[in-house]
Design a protein around this nucleic acid. Structure first.
Lengths: 129, 129
DNA sequence: TAGGATTTCCGACGTATGTAGTAGGATGTG
DNA sequence: CACATCCTACTACATACGTCGGAAATCCTA
């Protein structure tokens, strides 16, 4: 299972590790807003499961607390999510774009940014080739 | 629950109703390729659950078979999916676009199409206003 | 009309996910 | 050292999903 499927909560936990770096359970838990914060043991359970999925690992120990670090990259995880998402739309981007635009999720600025990104990427690929 | 969350298989079943119109369990099941086709009762179970979620309903009866029809629209369901997806990316399109482009899921043609769609939509909105 | 074919309706089960409590060991402090 | 804390390791449980099997009702056809 090179790229395990991660649920929403699992992604949120990984997000902490990706942005804040190696962290303890307590730190991960507290990174959730005071509002919708899951119980300590809930976070712990998810972390253990992520460990079983090899999405993260125990990096070291400070006192009696384990410090966990991400094993899979943010890009890899998100690419996995995108694939998952696309597969529901039949794997074609066009209907997705249409949906996004119809629903107003995609603005002209987003499209302009996308265009620029594409251009930059094309230039980069050319240079690398 | 105006817009229930639909899983991948549930979406595939709804897709049949959206494209083929009201159908019987058997027809839905057979619309899956001969390969990865779920058992009749599997499809049936999902249909029953979709019924409980009010995503579809029994339209009429032909012989002893029920004919089911979609209650929620394809657009509504897909918008729900998009929201779900976006929430994982923090609700912002930009990182999603970046991800899509980096991963090669989004081509310049897709972006061009998006641009055109946006333009058309803008024109339409102006006219309606 | 009798019997096979088709459907329905229910119940079951394994895995995934979200949620959390408890018991007990490790830690740090007065 | 005695304790209050903190963390770990387990266990538990509900809901959602995907997968069906079995029994009974219903239909159609020879």
């Amino acid at each position: 299972m090179r790229l395990p499927k991660l649920s929403k909560l699992e992604m949120q936990i990984m997000e902490v590790l990706w942005t804040a770096g190696p962290s303890a359970i307590r730190e991960i838990q507290e990174s959730f807003g005071p509002k919708n914060r899951p119980a300590y043991t809930t976070v712990q359970t998810m972390v253990y499961r992520l460990e079983a999925k090899k999405a993260l690992r125990r990096a070291k120990k400070i006192g009696n607390a384990h410090i966990f670090e991400a094993v899979i990259s943010r890009d890899a995880a998100k690419a996995r999510l995108v694939d998952e998402f696309l597969s529901i739309f039949g794997g074609r981007m066009q209907p997705v774009m249409a949906q996004l635009i119809e629903a107003g999720n995609l603005t002209s600025k987003d499209v302009a940014d996308a265009e620029k990104l594409l251009k930059d990427l094309a230039a980069k690929r050319k240079k690398d080739a």
